[in-house]
């Protein structure tokens, strides 16, 4: 409990009724909104808002891996670059990778390596780019959740989506999805990522102070939350592809009608069409 002394006196992270600073209960997520397919150039992309976090994820590939000596003759590499925009945090962050970003990029790459069917794409790289545009604690979970949708949007074959969430401890209470103040003044934070259908944990980190029992509680909260997050991910993909599917359906409906028309004959004297490049 020595940590509590560092909290400004007036700041109580969770009150007697179990209500947190932003009005949530211990087991409530911040509002999450996901949109798939938001970028034109990338093979797949997603935009995600999670409380005050705003994150973009893009996927390129499978494409030739470079530098070439990194290529794996048997499978694809999954390479993630997590990056924070300089204006995403209160104090300007110097652009470019710092040690924290390098570590987060590494653990996220590893988290996806076991769900992507890497054997199908030898010598290639599946490149995942996560840009944190606005940060309010929990950006690696937000980024990973968005990246998962972007991978699906890119049509990368995967065993399942990966859903991610953190739980921690604030004012002596184990709680779900800490925001910035809770993360700064709380006692522990434990981000995780899971393959929802199999229950495989593909990312797990923790810092702070938890007993083994508290860790169990935290994991319960996170696992439950990832079920909700999984639904939001699937919903984002459904919305993205519902319109595509609809268009395809309409196309299919038109097809038989057209086929009943007598085949149009090409006027013989017309010059062949030239693609104007």
């Amino acid at each position: 409990m020595e940590d509590i002394e560092h909290i400004p006196k007036e700041l109580k992270l969770i009150d007697a009724k179990g209500i947190r600073l932003d009005g949530r209960r211990f087991d409530e997520l911040r509002p999450i909104r996901i949109e798939a397919g938001v970028l034109k150039k990338a093979d797949g992309s997603a935009y995600l808002e999670w409380g005050n976090n705003k994150v973009l994820a893009a996927v390129y590939g499978p494409r030739e891996a470079h530098p070439r000596h990194l290529q794996d003759p048997a499978k694809a590499l999954v390479q993630c670059r997590y990056n924070m925009a300089p204006f995403s945090v209160t104090e300007r962050k110097r652009p470019g990778p710092d040690r924290r970003s390098v570590e987060i990029s590494k653990v996220i790459s590893e988290a996806f390596a076991s769900v992507v069917f890497v054997e199908q794409f030898p010598r290639t790289s599946v490149d995942i780019f996560i840009e944190v545009l606005q940060a309010d604690a929990g950006t690696r979970c937000a980024g990973l959740t968005a990246a998962s949708v972007a991978l699906a949007d890119a049509g990368i074959p995967m065993r399942d989506l990966v859903a991610s969430c953190a739980s921690g401890k604030i004012g002596g209470v184990v709680a779900l999805d800490l925001n910035k103040d809770e993360d700064n003044f709380g006692e522990a934070d434990c981000p995780m990522a899971i393959v929802p259908r199999s229950g495989e944990i593909v990312l797990l980190q923790m810092d702070g102070h938890l007993t083994a029992d508290e860790f169990d509680k935290a994991m319960d909260l996170s696992i439950n939350a990832t079920k909700q997050i999984y639904e939001l991910q699937r919903d984002a993909l459904r919305r993205r592809y519902a319109s595509v599917a609809e268009a395809a359906e309409q196309e299919a409906m038109r097809e038989p009608a057209r086929s009943e028309e007598p085949p149009r004959e090409m006027p013989p004297d017309l010059p062949p069409e030239v693609d104007d490049l």
């Binding site: 653990v107 590893e110 390596a113 434990c190 797990l204 938890l210 007993t211 083994a212 860790f215």
Partner: peptide, 11 residues
């Protein structure tokens, strides 16, 4: 015996 840090690694 309390947990202070954790890190999962590898694929």
């Amino acid at each position: 015996g309390d947990i202070r840090a954790m890190q999962k690694g590898l694929k």
